[in-house]
Design a protein around this nucleic acid. Structure first.
Length: 270
DNA sequence: CTTGGGACCTGGCTGC
DNA sequence: TGCAGCCAGGTCCCAA
């Protein structure tokens, strides 16, 4: 399930293969993958365009094009982008051919992934909260953005309009590192807790990027390799296992309909 | 405005 | 061995 570190890894891996190269052909095998506009307009708008830059915003991948338009891709749960994959598989939804002979295959088992052609001021992208690893993201900014929300902190961290890029796994990991209970109200954190959480958000995401993402489900890097970030997980998907700090069994609860893992001793509510 | 719940999607797992 | 039913979670939509 691609979150910020996974999309960042994909961006870094794809960059040398697409930057400066031209889309020569585009095949859409499942029309549902196109979120806006027609399949025909999508293909026509892409063919002949050169990729001038590759970027990431939250969990979105942005291919900047020579006509100042932008190809936006979201992989959702099970989407993968594979370089030079062999034959199109059962789950192939789209294939991008480039002028250098390379191709990118978009596979997606659950058909939740989406893409569309936009300009640089896309409404979906502009609604996103700040990038947690950017230089202007500060504990003060985090505090301000949490201030008018009394939802559980776990839900606030995965709300893309509050902070961009954090999903279910990394929210659990950051909260464990900071020793904060996932059900604690977002606007009830002390300034010390805010600062600690800020540090752990950055540390967790940076460590996961170093490990090229977490392959807990179907995530693969464009060359087909797995990431290794999940080996460092201390609570995510570790229900019942002993806490690495205090040996208390990791608990699983549901927060806003999402599986949430935490240590009931290291992360107290009261 | 915020909040919470449901919908979407489908392979894999569990239990009978 | 077959199969029903549940689970995974990112995002959108709608009602309160």
């Amino acid at each position: 399930m691609p979150e910020l570190p996974e999309v960042e890894t994909i961006k870094n891996d794809l960059l040398p293969w697409v930057k400066g190269h031209r889309f020569s052909q585009v095949a859409i095998l499942d029309a549902r993958i196109i979120a806006r506009g027609s399949v025909e307009d999508f293909c026509q708008g892409l063919i002949g365009q050169t990729v001038t830059a590759l970027d990431r915003r939250g969990k979105y991948l942005l291919f900047h094009l020579s006509d100042n338009k932008c190809l936006i891709i979201h992989l959702r749960m099970t989407g993968v982008l594979l370089l030079d994959s062999g034959n199109s598989g059962r789950y192939t939804r789209a294939v991008f051919h480039f002028s250098n002979g390379r191709r990118i295959v978009f596979n997606d088992r659950r058909r939740l992934g989406l893409m569309w052609l936009s300009n640089s001021a896309d409404p979906t992208i502009s609604k996103l909260g700040p990038e947690p690893l950017s230089e202007d993201f500060t504990p003060e900014m985090l505090s301000k953005r949490l201030a008018n929300h009394q939802i559980p902190i776990k839900a606030a961290l995965t709300d893309q309009s509050i902070i961009a890029g954090i999903g279910n796994m990394y929210a659990d990991e950051a909260l464990f590192g900071a020793g904060i209970h996932p059900l604690k109200r977002a606007n009830s954190l002390s300034s010390t807790e805010i600062y600690t959480l800020f540090r752990w958000i950055q540390r967790t995401l940076q460590a996961a990027i170093q490990s090229q993402g977490a392959s807990v489900n179907t995530y693969l890097r464009p060359d087909g390799q797995q990431g290794t970030a999940h080996f460092q997980f201390r609570v995510a998907h570790r229900g019942g296992e002993p806490c690495s700090v205090c040996s208390t069994p990791i608990e699983r609860i549901e927060v806003r309909g999402r599986g949430t893992y935490f240590c009931p001793k290291c992360q107290r509510l009261g």
